[in-house]
Nucleic acid binder design. Structure first.
Lengths: 208, 208
DNA sequence: AGCTGTGAACGCATTCACAGCG
DNA sequence: CGCTGTGAATGCGTTCACAGCT
């Protein structure tokens, strides 16, 4: 293992490795070569080996990787040994879908609070979570610290909501609103944006 | 304008420019500098100018860009002058949220068909679309050609559904299932995957 | 022989510095 | 003087070729 700068792209691939390994562990497999993994993921074997090599020498030459061990390694690298608390702002369609998603494949991400501005849903219960008024986001005191905020509110409200979430101590945000958030740079932001993905998709579809 | 290879990353930014310009046009603005645009989007002015320069000389030196004209140019580059027909496979939570999203900001993407395997929803009507049985996907004949498929079904079914969609003539697919699709390489695929985004997010959150 | 680990080469994308024009 | 357009330089990520174990 080297003390190098690790490419962001490498980090983005780790969760793919992680999920695939998880499935294979469940299936009871116990050794895996980079070539094999590459077939499952559509990522070149050399790429996989280089990615892993940033973090250590996990494989054995001539053999491959011990599946379970590699899984544990990646779990530890990604900080997925512990669980993470998530708050969701906005529980109309998308927000609700996310709650379902995270609730269903309980993958170390726990929804601990949910907010909405619509009076009709405030106070109701979705997947065991009582929806709070979005206006209370500033004041509310969570029993547990919130690590990550997910923004699924109207674009015009996204920036303010993001600031509130940061005030409440979140370290990362997933933003489904097509809005630039102006946050301190130590806050990690993931932008998820279907319409803009569709935009570049049709560029390529049209140019053939 | 040059006959060069255009970076994929450039294409991915165009929809961001497009949406921002759209908003500004609505506000009645008429001239825009790259620096100004950069403040809205968090993208460096030189980056914006280089991106645009791949497609032509849209600005005037000393002045900036004619907002409306630039908007039209990008619209044309992205093939957003025409509208695009979309079919959705899977209308439980995520699928439904997508229908709402595209229906709401009617942005040239029309949902023309929707499928689900759940008998309880087949035949029902969501946002004016009658849900068809997913098993009929192969046989069904759409009145209009389908350009893009959105996959929001169970991961284990995703590959088969994708193949059916391609048989029906879609040129591009947005896949919300964490599954590698094995499709002919002329089919453009966008992978959307919240759990894996959360995965790399916590890597960075944990390493501070 | 088979598969991993890695420096070196390559290719792609961003940034810089400045020329070109209004 | 201000802002765009662009070749050249830099930086980042992927691929290659092969050394190193088993």
């Amino acid at each position: 293992m080297k003390e190098q700068k690790i490419p962001k792209e490498t980090i983005k691939r780790l969760p793919l490795y992680y999920r695939c390994l998880n499935r294979l562990v469940v299936l009871g497999k116990d050794t895996l070569s980079s070539t094999e993994l590459s077939e499952y993921l559509g990522i070149k074997p050399t790429q996989i080996r280089k990615d892993l090599s940033y973090f250590g020498d996990f494989g054995t030459r001539g053999v491959g990787y011990d599946l379970r061990k590699l899984f544990k390694e990646i779990e530890s690298i990604l900080n997925l040994e512990r669980s993470w608390n998530i708050a969701i702002a906005g529980v109309s369609n998308i927000g609700c879908a996310i709650m379902d998603l995270l609730d269903f494949n309980h993958s170390g991400f726990n929804i601990v609070a949910a907010f909405d501005s619509d009076n009709r849903v405030v106070g109701s219960n979705i997947y065991g979570i009582t929806i709070q008024d979005l206006d209370n986001l500033k004041e509310c005191t969570a029993d547990e610290p919130i690590d990550i905020g997910i923004i699924a509110v109207d674009p015009v409200d996204a920036r303010e909501v993001a600031n509130c979430l940061v005030d409440k101590g979140v370290k990362g945000i997933v933003n489904f609103a097509p809005t630039l958030l102006n946050l301190p740079k130590e806050i990690e932001v993931v932008q998820m944006d279907l319409t803009s993905e569709l935009g570049w998709l049709v560029f390529y579809i049209g140019h053939r």
